[in-house]
Simulated scan of single mutants.
Amino acid sequence: MRAPLGDFADATPAPERLDVLTGPVADAVRDWRGSVPAERIVYVDTEPEWADTATFLEHYGPDLLDRSANCVVVEGRRGGETTLAACVVLSATRVDVNGVVRRRLGARKASFASMDTATGGTGMEYGGITPIGLPAGWPVLVDPAVVDLPYVLVGSGRRRGKLLVPGRAFAELPNAEVVEGLGVA
Rank of each mutant, 00 (worst) to 15 (best):
M1I: 01
A3D: 03
P4V: 01
P4G: 00
A11H: 03
T12I: 14
T12C: 10
R17A: 15
D19A: 09
L21D: 07
T22A: 05
V25T: 13
R30E: 02
W32C: 12
G34Y: 06
A38K: 08
E39H: 05
R40W: 12
V42K: 01
V42Q: 01
D45S: 14
E47S: 00
F56L: 02
L57Y: 10
E58R: 04
G61M: 09
D63W: 03
L65D: 10
L65P: 13
C71F: 15
E81G: 12
E81Q: 03
T82F: 02
T83C: 01
T83L: 01
A85M: 11
A86K: 14
V88F: 15
T93L: 06
G99Q: 11
G99W: 10
G106T: 10
A107T: 13
K109I: 12
A113C: 15
D116E: 07
D116S: 14
T119A: 15
T122E: 06
G123H: 11
E125F: 06
G127N: 05
P131G: 11
V142Y: 12
D148K: 13
Y151I: 05
L153E: 03
L153H: 04
S156K: 04
S156R: 02
R158F: 03
L164N: 04
P166K: 14
A169K: 11
E180Q: 12
E180I: 14
V184Y: 07
A185S: 14
